[in-house]
Design a protein around this nucleic acid. Sequence first.
DNA 1: GTCTATAATAAGATAGAC
DNA 2: GTCTATCTTATTATAGAC
Lengths: 222, 222
Amino acid sequence: MTTTPALCAAPEPAPRKGRKNNPEKTRENILQAAISEFVQQGLAGARVDAIAERTQTSKRMIYYYFNSKEQLYVEVLEKLYGDIRSTESNLHLAELEPRLGIRRLVEFTFDHHDRNVDFVRIVCNENMHHGEYVKRSSAIRSMNKSVLTALDEVLRRGAAEGVFRQGLDALDVHLLISSFCFYRVSNRHTFGEIFQVDFEETAVKDRHREMICESVLRFLQA
Amino acid sequence: MTTTPALCAAPEPAPRKGRKNNPEKTRENILQAAISEFVQQGLAGARVDAIAERTQTSKRMIYYYFNSKEQLYVEVLEKLYGDIRSTESNLHLAELEPRLGIRRLVEFTFDHHDRNVDFVRIVCNENMHHGEYVKRSSAIRSMNKSVLTALDEVLRRGAAEGVFRQGLDALDVHLLISSFCFYRVSNRHTFGEIFQVDFEETAVKDRHREMICESVLRFLQA
DNA sequence: GTCTATAATAAGATAGAC
DNA sequence: GTCTATCTTATTATAGAC
């Protein structure tokens, strides 16, 4: 009953079965499946079997390429962190009038978190683990400098022009912006349920986007 | 080899072994152990065996009192949600000048989150589960009204006196306050690691407390 | 490089004595 | 009400053929 090769010589030494051998594609396929599973279930809740089911390949390949569940998780983490910071550098804040620059940065941050629930969820999960896997990855720490330097430039310029207060710390302002943008995504389920708000509604979203802009600008105002 | 009772009649029908029978205490003991475990590991990461080890009793008792891991988790959730709201009602905001009332509410919220990392972590975990266990508990939803009514009263009074803007929504303001207070606790590990901030430092804490007060007051300002 | 089958163990839940 | 011992299933990880 085993399907031994036909007696007449095969034209090529083609792969025996299944899909074409394609290491890069298989690896990427696994990584995408892992993103879905880890984002939905967290590290502890994720099942390697469930990841395998999401792929076009088998569980064995997961261990072949990634060695362990934890290592796969770290790669997922790096991938999702990488996505957000790459787009942030294209805002050209230095070309804008300070107040407009802040507005653009806040709106970008707001929309980005809103669109990338995956990122928000994995970060939450990471904090449940006391950030130990972020600490383990040297790549992640280095890619987050850009926001701060860009923001710092705008703040200085605004202060010099007299539209912003003196002595504002870019890190603090970044914290203020991030917290709102992050929280309304990360806590939408509990906050939404308890206070009966639907964060998916366009009207609510628009009001909140405007609100955080207004709030930050007022905070910076001289 | 079984330790059958001595032939001479025992003085009292005392408990056979181990500690004294004490249902309430045993139940509470389990609940406290469960809080520690669920808060640290999340629902998926928590192990019933680990909870049992934290108690002065056995795993069997966990199932005896709580039936399942999930039900135990729900009770933990209710317990932690209950703790926060009960204290909030003692602020007597209505007796204060509006700006002072806001300041007291913000500072209370800030300090409360800062002191109750457990609460913050369980809420994060709940959101990973799309808030399904919060939805399952009718108790939780009902206990969160008080903040909003208190805040609404202050906002109205402030608007009437001309110190605050008109038409501010208490829910939005609550969101603004909560997001900052929550985020700096929930994300302290990732944010702290990436930007090298130590949220435990008193100086940092004091600066942030003042910052969120200032930020909210400026947002409300007429 | 890829597959199927399986080992090894961990974890939720229960039996049954006392 | 409480304990020890155990059942059952799920889960990470690996062996070995092709």
